[in-house]
């Protein structure tokens, strides 16, 4: 997902306090920033929300890549609005993380130093316009699978950020599917491009949910804390079940010879992605990891004079105002 393989932090605190905290969560209460929370809860959330925020920001890069080359002015305006939304999503999430006592600059620095991660999916290239369709349809589609249940997460600011984000996401997925429909109904060459984009993005999209975590202690803890709502396998299954008919409508083929409907479980059987590829990508060896980090580092460095300049201007104006009073 946008937050993959988030390790939960151990907590050793007063068992009575912990039990009372857990009871509040079980009762469906929201935890707010100033209230008591276990250290592990706080740290795990910073890691998860931070990783989610970084993913929104880095996720602008593969799509931003096509803004200047969109095929029509309308498509360009739509993509621009979509990418701008992702910047907004990043900001909502950084602010949610900041309520836990970490600053946005600290989070950014942790991303740039490689201490924090972003979703594996954004390390794949967008080679042509059909990829922009596939990203909206599949990548935003997979993100929605995870974000919809997270609206019910136990941490108030995170839940509220998710509610805002979910309101905006279905535009993202629909604009992607709309691109796919146009291409799938276009010339044979265009349809072939759409199929090629699906071929390349299918397994990386399945990887977004992370490896199976049904036996993971970290996931069990996060689920008890309601900062994770479903297992990775549950979400992946749901995503496949939802996406297969959408591909059929487009007349495109999911690149999985093992894919078939399983009447008994009421869902599709499908092939797992290549998890060794996934681990390589999160280790930094994906096709675009270096490029993505370079772009983020450059934006941070090139923006420094601007951030500082505006701050100096604000200080000067505040001083002049005081002097005038």
């Amino acid at each position: 997902m946008y937050a993959q393989m988030v390790k939960s932090e151990a907590t050793n605190e007063d068992p009575e306090k912990l039990a009372a905290f857990q009871a509040r969560i079980d009762a469906g209460e929201k935890i707010e920033p100033k209230e008591w929370m276990p250290e592990g809860y706080r740290k795990t959330l910073i890691r998860q929300i931070g990783q989610h925020a970084h993913s929104e920001i880095v996720g602008q890069l593969p799509e931003g890549n096509w803004i200047t080359r969109a095929p029509t002015l309308e498509r360009k305006a739509i993509l621009l609005a979509k990418v701008q939304d992702e910047a907004g999503h990043g900001l909502y999430l950084y602010c949610a993380a900041e309520t836990l006592g970490v600053s946005r600059d600290e989070l950014t620095e942790a991303l740039l130093s490689g201490k924090m991660k972003y979703s594996s999916i954004f390390n794949y290239p967008t080679l042509n316009w059909a990829d922009i369709g596939a990203v909206g349809w599949l990548v935003d589609g997979a993100a929605i699978m995870n974000q919809v249940p997270l609206q019910r997460t136990s941490f108030g600011p995170y839940s509220r950020a998710m509610i805002r984000i979910c309101k905006e996401e279905s535009f993202h997925q629909r604009q992607g599917y709309d691109i796919m429909m146009k291409m799938a109904q276009g010339t044979p060459e265009q349809k072939a491009m759409a199929q090629d984009a699906l071929n390349r993005f299918w397994y990386p999209s399945l990887m977004m949910f992370g490896p199976s975590d049904k036996d993971s202690v970290h996931s069990a803890q996060s689920m008890a804390w309601k900062i994770k709502i479903n297992t990775n396998d549950e979400l992946r299954q749901k995503f496949v079940d939802q996406t297969v008919p959408q591909a059929e409508y487009l007349g495109l083929t999911i690149p999985d010879p093992e894919l078939r409907w399983n009447e008994e479980k009421g869902g599709y059987d499908f092939s797992e992605p290549d998890w060794s590829e996934f681990f390589e990508v999160i280790k930094g060896n994906g096709p675009c990891n270096a490029e993505r980090m370079e772009a983020r580092q450059k934006a941070w460095d090139d923006g420094a004079w601007f951030r500082e300049g505006l701050m100096a201007h604000a200080r000067k104006r505040a001083a002049a105002k005081v002097a005038a009073e």
């Binding site: 900001l91 602010c95 900041e98 951030r307 505006l310 701050m311 201007h313 604000a314």
Partner: peptide, 11 residues
């Protein structure tokens, strides 16, 4: 509705 960073009130 939330918070954000800015150098001054106008921004």
């Amino acid at each position: 509705v939330g918070s954000l960073h800015a150098p001054d009130a106008e921004m």
